[in-house]
Design a protein around this nucleic acid. Structure first.
Lengths: 243, 243
DNA sequence: CGTCTTCTTGACCCTTTTCAAGCGCAGTGG
DNA sequence: CCACTGCGCTTGAAAAGGGTCAAGAAGACG
């Protein structure tokens, strides 16, 4: 199956200019692909990673597991993302990864990646950049969950997901798949499930956006952006066409 | 002045085994050193970085600036840290850096770093690792500010600062310098300044720790660790001796 | 000695959490 | 085919925790 390579090349190309040789090097990588059921874990806290994951389709989440059993979701990943590129130089995973809805993930041995990095430093830098973009998204999450009121948090998260989905060409019309439950939204944004519901209801009421049945519909993009104080600069992508 | 090289080598050595050639390569780097006053910015949001910073002494902070003028502090850095290694492959800074107390920072051109990375890939990987540890700290901050009650947040932050200070050999007895104001603590942990004060007063009252006049004193380390649900694994350092 | 900033504390109010109950739907097994 | 069950969503009412506001104390600095 060619798709794993395609989505990776597409994604890295969003921020790094890849030479034909880099593309060839990536196409030579051997991926092992696997399908996961919703909420199925594929990397656990404490694992010692020897492979890197690549989201081929569906959505994937990273989360911390707290002593109380509560989860804290940290980030979400769409097709083309390397959700555990962070594990490349790390002894033990400090967080877990799971499929959000049904998802297809491809794995590649670190060993093989390191060889490719040596042969094509640009490829290595592209992956490094990828990890830095990840970090920028984390920073924004700190700010979002610490400094913004509830509605703004929700709006910001949805802006980010929608924007990234558009870049990954996963938006059709004004909607994209976001197979996430209210409980998970709460564990992402640090709010109680009741508040999640009421916040979503309010955004629905004002006709700004609608998130239900695993689908996000953005009705007033600029308004949503304003509410969430969303500025996509932190995603460090090539400027995108915004409606 | 040799100190800049020393602290960098010490810091990278905490997680990466450097060969003599790597150390020599680092020693050959030309740093431009500068002193900064408390709260002085040295990198601003929107800057296009051409240099990397290295904290030589003192403490440095990274923050987001919100539309309202409020700041959200994202991370703190001690001597040896490369607080904007994130800027290496990034077009525009999405956050600012400032000195917390008086601080000395050394700068090195990206160009020179890239050359050194090519000559000594291990050095490049060490810096990459450094950026990944940064990201792990961000992740922990998301969890801290989203999922933990106020006292635990404070305890966790102080545990992290104290632990890292110890690794950087900045702890003497049970105390270390942390030149941070209540306002800044509030803008770090996402709490109102009154709450910051009350939380600190409570920790002081129970004799767990004391943070005042720019100095952190840890009186009951294990208790503080328990309160803050602090597990240093996420720092990805070599196991440290803990009292 | 006065002024400014930072810290401290109290009182009040409001947002959000918690708790509880009900609804709708999908899957299961009688 | 239809209870039964479990899960996720919805909503209301009560409770709590933290935010806001205001005023005073304690230093720091000129």
């Amino acid at each position: 199956m060619e798709k794993a390579h395609d989505v990776l090349i597409r994604n890295l190309g969003e921020h790094t200019k890849l030479a034909a040789e880099d593309v060839a090097e990536i196409r030579a990588l051997t991926f092992t692909q696997r399908d996961f059921a919703p909420n199925e874990d594929f990397i656990r806290q404490g694992d010692e990673p020897e492979h890197s994951a690549l989201v081929v389709s569906g959505m994937v989440a990273r989360y911390h597991l707290l002593g109380s059993g509560r989860r804290q979701y940290l980030a979400f990943h769409l097709s083309g993302d390397l959700p555990d590129s962070q594990g490349l130089f790390i002894d033990q995973m400090d967080h877990a990864l799971c499929a959000l809805g049904p998802a297809t993930v491809a794995f590649i041995p670190h060993r093989e990646l390191f060889i490719a990095f040596r042969r094509r430093p640009t490829f290595g830098q592209a992956v490094w950049r990828e990890t830095l973009r990840d970090a920028a998204i984390f920073r924004e999450a700190i700010t979002n969950n610490s400094a913004r009121p509830m509605q703004a948090r929700m709006a910001h998260l949805c802006c980010e997901l929608f924007y990234r989905a558009r870049v990954a060409q996963l938006v059709r019309g004004n909607r994209c798949r976001v197979p996430i439950s209210l409980t998970q939204l709460g564990e992402t944004l640090g709010m109680a499930i009741a508040t999640v519901n009421r916040t979503l209801a309010e955004l629905r009421r004002t006709g700004t956006m609608d998130l239900r049945e695993g689908e996000l519909i953005v009705l007033k993009w600029r308004e949503l952006q304003r509410l969430g104080d969303f500025n996509p600069a932190y995603l460090h992508l090539k400027p995108q066409l915004v409606r």
